[in-house]
Amino acid sequence: MAVLRGFVQMSPKIAFAFAGLHTLEEMTEDYFQPFFASVIPIRVGFLNRATTRQLLANPKPEFLLIYEAEAMDRIYDLTFGQPYLVQLLGFLLVGRYNEETFEEGKPREPVFKVADVDAIIAQNELFQNGSYYFTGVWQQAGQDASGQQDILKVLAKYSEGCSYL
């Protein structure tokens, strides 16, 4: 951590992006990690539908895989634009495509469809690979105001969402 702190303090051309469940304020409470006290927080919230689509479909100009609009909508509906989950689903889809195409030798179009997204969900790949995130959310819901975990249990029954009306 001392080396990273030195980079941040000595070079204006180096930047780090930290993402997680804990805020920088929480991280600076650890006296033995003064590194976090020397960084500037920039809050990143949930992505809207259009930004989620742009992130998935255009990560780099040379990205040759295509998402059907319905697949991007499904990802947004599943994640509500939570950046880590959007990125994780995209990563898992590309990994699945590479495995099928290059390791198994199955010919397939370079297009992600709703069925591809649903296959990731059905095989629990999102939950297994994102277990640290989901565990962290669950633990945070167990702190502070009581009943938050109970609310999450009720909401979990509505996989397609629910209305408060």
Rank of each mutant, 00 (worst) to 15 (best):
A17D: 10
L92A: 00
L152W: 12
V86W: 04
N58I: 05
L47V: 05
G130I: 02
F63D: 08
E109Q: 09
A71W: 08
G45M: 10
L92S: 00
G147P: 08
Q54N: 10
V44G: 06
D77Y: 08
Q123C: 08
A141T: 08
Y164H: 09
Q149K: 14
I120H: 13
D30K: 05
T51V: 12
L4F: 09
S159A: 12
Q82I: 06
Q54T: 14
S159D: 12
F36E: 00
V137W: 11
K106L: 07
V137F: 13
K13V: 12
V117M: 04
P59Y: 02
E29I: 10
R49Y: 11
Q87P: 00
R43A: 11
P59E: 01
K157A: 05
V111R: 10
A71Y: 07
A57C: 13
T51K: 13
P59F: 03
Q140K: 15
G130Q: 04
Q148L: 13
F63I: 05
D77M: 09
S163L: 06
K153R: 14
T23P: 02
V94R: 13
I121C: 08
P61K: 07
E25L: 05
Q82G: 02
M72N: 06
P83T: 01
N129M: 06
E29M: 13
E29G: 13
F80W: 08
S163A: 08
T79H: 02
N124G: 06
M27Q: 12
A71T: 04
T51G: 02
R49M: 10
T23H: 02
G81F: 02
G6D: 13
P110R: 10
K113A: 09
F7L: 05
D116F: 01
A69H: 11
L85D: 04
L56G: 02
Q33P: 08
Q139S: 06
F102K: 11
R5D: 15
Q140E: 14
E62Y: 14
F7C: 01
F35G: 00
L65K: 07
A122H: 10
V114D: 03
Q128E: 14
Q149T: 14
E70D: 15
G95R: 14
L88N: 01
F35I: 01
L64S: 14
